[in-house]
């Protein structure tokens, strides 16, 4: 398992470095824009908007009527660029973990060695989780650096809560992609199915946030359990969200492992 883990990690270091650089650049850019606008102006602008448009912006971009650094943190954490970047990485790494190896025939070389399929998939999952963890670490350090760059300070615990919540969300997205990968024979098939499910969930979350009658269905979506706005307002650990995301990803990884053990290659 350790060899599969290390080898898999080596094969994803290039996209990891690329995504890390993009994260850092966008954090700096967003920090710069926020700093130029100033807290008061941003809040003032939001107040001027009609309620429906305000809801839309809150839902889509995480804009929230919170002043200061906390407002900036919540907005950045829900910013589409980061959602898209982390989702793309989590799906690409997860969906490719098994089905791409089957597609290329690489898996025949590996599984003809004395290694169980459980150890193989565990090594792959560990490499995915480690990659996402490293990206979240870069994201956390980037957030801190960006704030320091503009001379702002805030409660450090908030950073940790936000990043753990983000990490767990993208682990769950990765678990879904690994699951599709464990059933499929082609990476493109697994990526396609994963993207479809994630887009559907994002849509459900979006509609449940802006349309009152749909609000009670929001729990179906995994994005429902990632709410940076609530974290900065409540300043508390969102244990329930953490639990749902952790249990969800563990269960899906388990299903992937069982399916992979039983399937033909």
């Amino acid at each position: 398992m350790v060899y599969v883990f290390l080898f898999s990690l080596r094969t994803v270091w290039r996209p990891m470095v690329f995504v890390s650089l993009i994260i850092l650049l966008f954090l700096l850019l967003i920090g710069f824009v926020w700093n130029s606008l100033g807290d008061t102006l941003a809040i003032g602008l939001m107040e001027l908007l009609p309620d429906d448009l305000k809801k839309l912006l809150e839902s889509q971009f995480g804009f929230m009527p919170a002043a200061g650094v906390e407002g900036w943190l919540a907005s950045v954490s829900r910013h589409p660029i980061f959602i898209v970047l982390f989702t793309a990485y989590s799906i690409a790494v997860g969906a490719g973990s098994i089905s791409r190896e089957i597609e290329t025939g690489d898996i025949l070389f590996v599984l003809s060695k004395p290694i169980s399929r459980t150890a193989f998939i565990a090594g792959k999952i560990m490499a995915s989780v480690t990659g996402i963890f490293i990206l979240q670490l870069v994201y956390l350090l980037g957030l801190i650096a960006s704030l320091r760059f503009f001379g702002a300070t805030t409660n450090m615990d908030l950073f940790i809560y936000l990043v753990i919540n983000s990490f767990l969300l993208f682990i769950l997205i990765n678990a879904m992609a690994v699951c599709f990968s464990a059933f499929g024979n082609e990476a493109s098939w697994a990526i396609g199915r994963s993207v479809m499910v994630i887009l559907l969930m994002y849509f459900v979350d979006f509609v449940s946030n802006i349309w009152e009658p749909a609000a009670s269905y929001g729990f179906i979506s995994l994005f429902h359990y990632y709410d940076p706005g609530n974290i900065v307002l409540d300043q508390k650990v969102p244990w329930q969200d953490f639990a749902v995301l952790s249990l969800g990803s563990s269960a899906i990884y388990l299903v992937s492992g069982v399916a992979f053990r039983k399937r033909d290659i």
Partner: peptide, 17 residues
């Protein structure tokens, strides 16, 4: 996995990593 310890296998595929 146990059997694979004794075996050397050349697959038909050569598109490895």
């Amino acid at each position: 996995a146990e059997i694979a310890a004794q075996v050397g296998f050349v697959p038909d595929s050569i598109n490895t990593y």
